[in-house]
Design a binder for these strands. Structure first.
Lengths: 240, 240
DNA sequence: CCAGACACGCGTACGTGTACGCAAGATGTG
DNA sequence: CACATCTTGCGTACACGTACGCGTGTCTGG
């Protein structure tokens, strides 16, 4: 999107002009809207990002946005893709598949919990944006290198993915509802333990243990290398 | 909730009287509202159950409901509890812990996918309704009987639970968005395979394999039975 | 029996996402 | 230049959940 003037009109309610002037021709573009939405989500957060406020921010009428955006979810998709792109990559080496996978899962989990808009997107439909696909391919690659054949890698990825999203949803929902109901006795504690980052690591550990076994079975008689773990490192899957 | 007359006024817009009459005193009660909402959700589905339509159905003004219900989510909680109560119990014997757990998880998954209202409730906050707690206790019991100590059972339950919800969310979201975007090539197939019931079983299998190992470690020197599946898992896998 | 307190049903109003279609600017064609 | 057509910004309007507070019905203490 070009370096247009912008000419300032934000909010458009408090201008000298009666404020009835419609915006210049060609002011809007999808990328500009996405950019504004991304900024709004980063500051302020998802809850405060309404179509109306976004339009006001840009200096345009709410309905104008719908020329470039199917609906709010469509807009969020793109925003979340931009945000995900910045955070999903693990720091671990791909050679240590278990650590790498655990970190990738944890990165996604933290992202989803931190950014409610992202969680919403992940819950409302499968995410097939650019960054999400890159991430999937990368994970499938690492899983393959761990000894899984294509089908098994797909299945393992699916399991890890849904577990991660499910956990993030649970964690977010819990943190959303602290202080609502008093919630008798040990129950509160139990719920809390379900949604700790530590518990995420443990559950993921179960999953990876099971996947390890599958990898061994896949490898079959081939003594496949790539087994940089399998012994004595099931612990500490990926906790912050 | 008594056997009051009801006197018919449903919709209240098309009565002989100018329709300005307010409803009788004491018509409303929480349980009646919940019952009406449950019926509305069973037929028609969640999407069509709006506060306004529900109120019309009962023959009362929308705002009247709020005397008995904090908000729509509060109402849904109770509705979903009633629905869950009917469907969560596995048919398998508790002695076969693996089959029992798998069936319990699958029952919940199917319920969540079939009933969007339930999925919503499970995603918006931790569910601590009566049926949900019963279910949790039952699962913890079976897990304990499988050889896990209290802490490990809790952790395993949490993992299974979040996996189940995550999977259901994914499956529902996918079925919700078929036909929207064309979605190039193998991607569609990949996504489809992620959300098949078969994939649910496989992922759960990974989880249960991991949990089995944990159970063995828990049992320690005790020779505990409980191993109804998996194979070929040598050493390793310290979790905790 | 009456006055005050309380319970209850509801009218009004707000902010939300967005369907529908109009009108004004841009662009093309004679 | 006149006119048709296409593009784009937007006004209006609707259904949604629900905050706020009013008026009416019921109950309770004097």
């Amino acid at each position: 999107m070009g370096t247009k003037d912008r000419s300032m009109s934000a909010a458009r309610a408090k201008t000298q002009v009666p404020a009835n002037t419609r915006a210049q021709w060609g002011t809007l573009s999808r990328s500009q809207i996405v950019a504004a939405a991304t900024k709004a989500v980063k500051g302020g957060g998802y809850a405060s990002m309404t179509i109306r406020s976004l339009a006001a921010q840009i200096g345009v009428s709410p309905m104008s946005l719908y020329r470039y955006v199917r609906d709010k979810d469509d807009l969020l998709d793109e925003v979340v893709d931009a945000l995900l792109e910045e955070v999903w990559r693990p720091a671990a080496s791909e050679d240590e598949w278990r650590a790498w996978i655990a970190e990738a899962a944890d990165n996604l989990r933290r992202f989803l919990v931190r950014e409610p808009a992202a969680l919403r997107v992940y819950l409302v439909h499968p995410v097939v944006s650019k960054a999400a696909l890159e991430r999937m391919e990368a994970m499938l690659g690492v899983l393959g290198q761990a000894g899984l054949d294509n089908e098994a890698a797909l299945s393992a990825y699916g399991a890890i993915h849904t577990y991660t999203i499910g956990f993030a949803a649970f964690e977010a929902s819990r943190s959303r509802s602290v202080g609502s109901e008093p919630l008798a006795g040990d129950l509160a504690g139990r719920l809390a333990s379900f949604s700790s980052p530590r518990q995420f690591g443990e559950g993921l550990g179960y999953l990876l243990d099971g996947i390890s076994q599958a990898a061994e079975n896949c490898a079959g008689r081939f003594s496949n290398a790539s087994n940089a773990s399998n012994a004595s490192n099931a612990s500490n899957a990926g906790q912050r």
